[in-house]
Amino acid sequence: MKNPIKKHTNDVILESATTFITFIIFLFAVYLFFAGHYTPGGGFVGGLVTASALVLILLAFDIKTLRQILPVDYKQMTAIGMLISVLTASGALLFNKPFFTHAHDYFNLPLFGKTSLHTAMLFDLGVYLVVVGVTMTIIQTIGESD
């Protein structure tokens, strides 16, 4: 099934807007990811927002352009994300604590000042990668066959 409408339609505005809007969305995703530490946000939302940025590129250009910009295998990304999450959670096993028990402490970092670091953050990083990976895999699977 070939798409009868050829790609080169008049979407200059969308294409040029995408080039910079994408970065804003990315930044917002990063903000959401870190905000999830103590306020609403987190890996899941951050991942979805990142995926939406990628989908925007996909809509404005096409799947080949996206592959050139970001040459990653999203299935591998999902696997790596899950691995990070599961291993973070199983870290507690080493200390003979129940699975998922997290550790946190306050550190004085340069530039940031007093910051709380949390192993839950690593778990969230895994969630972030899984969400981006899964969403993009689904969209590519449906999109590719057009």
Binding site: Q76, A79, L93
Partner: peptide
């Protein structure tokens, strides 16, 4: 639960 979970994830690689 954990052994097959980690296995499944590693197999995905």
């Amino acid at each position: 639960l954990l052994i097959p979970l980690i296995t499944g994830v590693i197999l995905m690689l």
